[in-house]
Every structure is written in C-alpha cells, then in structure tokens.
Amino acid sequence: MSEWKFTAKEIAEKPELFASGHRACAGCVPATVHRLVLKAARGPIIASHATGCIEVSSTIYPYTAWRIPWIHTAFENVAANASGIETALKVLRRKGKIKNEHVDVVAFAGDGGTYDIGIQALSGAAERGHDFLYVLYDNEAYMNTGIQRSGGTPHGAWTTTSPAGKVIPGKPQFKKPIAEIMVAHEIPYVATASPFYWKDLIAKARKGLEAEGPAFLHVIAPCPRGWRFPTEKGIELSRLAVETCVFPLWEAVDGEYRLSAPSKVIALKPERKKPVKEYLKIQGRFRHLFTPEHEHVISEIQEIVDKRWKRLLKKCGIA
C-alpha cells in the first residue's frame, strides 16, 4: 500500500461530497466524520448507509446531503448492501454494461448497526471478501432512537436503557472490541480513528478505499446529546479519548497491528497517558460515577482501559 500524501489545502479544496444543510444536531461529530471520510475519495464512489442518525438527518425527502450515489435499505444490512453494490459494479463492468472504471464502495453505520444488529451481515461480507470500506461511526449508543445502550456503549455509561439507578449505576458490561473482531476476520485493513486527528482519519479512510478487499474503519464519534456534553466539546473529547487510551489509534494491515502516531507517542512516553477521569468528567453520561458510592466504577473503567492498552501494545510489538 503506497502512502497517499496530501496537504490541508488540498483537502480544503476537495469537493464536499457530504453537503452542508443536513439536519444533524448542533455539535454532531458523526456528521464531521462523514465529511472527513469522503474527503478521502479517490474517484467515483457509491455510499450506503445503515439506518441511524446520519441516515435520517441527511436524507429527509425531498432533500439529500449526498452528492454521490447513495442508498439506504434497512438497519442490520448495510454490509449486504455494499456486497450487492460491489458485486453489481464488478459484473456490469465485466459485461460492458457500465463504463470500465473503478468505483469505490463505502458503507456507513453507527454502533447499533455494527456491534449489534448488523454484525451478521458485516461478518458475512468480510468473510466473502467484498471490496469495500466499512466506516463505523461510533457514538456509543442508539442515539437515533433516544440514547439506548448498545454493544458499543462503555462500562458505567448512563443511557435510557442502562440508567444510573440506585442499584445498577449505568451499563454493567464492557464495550465489545469490535475492531479486533474485524481483524480476526483476516481482512486486509482495519484501523481506528478520531476526528481530532483528522489527517490520520482521512489517510486511513483512503487506505481503506485502496485496500483490495474489505476494510474496516472504526471512528470514535462523540454525540453531544447522548453523551451529555456542551456542543463545542466534541472534538476535544475525540482528542481525550485517544490521550486517555480509552480509544487508542492503530491500524492492522493484513493482520499486523501497529500504533498510529498519536498513540505511539503515549506508548513511548507513558507519562503522557492521561487518567480516564479527565475524559469522563466532561460527559454527563458518567456524572453519576463521581459520587462516593459509585467511584469504584471509575477505577473499573481505568482498569479495563489499562488492560486493553497493554494488550494492544503487545499486539503492536511494544512492551
């Protein structure tokens, strides 16, 4: 895979394939994620979307924010959409029914559409080896339906189906390691990204498009409504998620893990690793943990973050 070099100016001058004027909430980071991913487009591209926030807010008929061909069919099947699109492009090109040029395929889904209801179609598409980029914009709950917990919701987080109750303080379970599950599918490219590190994100989206076969890009996408933070804090949280190692940045090319620069700095200088508390305290969904009776949950979160970080370093050949 040759590295695509680009400057901020070039990115700014590239057309906005995800147009403004959509009806996402103020401060919506997932919308920014979509915009950045599409900045990585290298030519003709078709997008598909699972049901979710961005799907509904970007295509309220008769309007659309998509300047590229786009299709939504249902919630649990965006990887099957991509399979069908990629297959059709391949055969129609072969038969001369469409122009003989390459068209990229990108599938977008939130955490619900990926970790939970969509994992079967995703796993199947990965196993079959369709050539497409799957972008998981992870806002860590079913935000479209009003903040319900998903397999991507972190431990201790309040949601409307994991309330901060007197007995059970938020979500008891831990976040499913979805990107590693995708690496286990032995697909050519898996990466994590954060919109604060936008250059890294765009470069990874590009690598995902360039990879021959399935590629999976897991992007942390803070949601002001669901995470309960002021609208201007989304990008800062995207940064803190990385700095606390809650959401380390890495990529696995053909199964070989390597840390990306922002996380590598922390690996090399562990004193730069911030405590998870700094990330949690900005977010209302963790507010209940900052009480004497639930403080232990913060320690649990720190423990799992440390454990997973250590495991990742091992996979990356560090430590």
Partner: peptide, 22 residues
C-alpha cells in the same frame, strides 16, 4: 456473479442493492 450470502435477509438485500446499481 453468485453471492453465497450468510442469510436470506442479506440475500435479498444484496439483490436489492445490486438492482439499484442497474
């Protein structure tokens, strides 16, 4: 192109999406 999908749900989805491409 014959896509041996992992479920009927995906079978019809893939057909629908392929059909949408033409």
């Amino acid at each position: 192109e014959f896509v041996c999908v992992e479920s009927e749900h995906s079978a019809l989805t893939a057909c629908l999406a392929a059909s949408a491409v033409g």
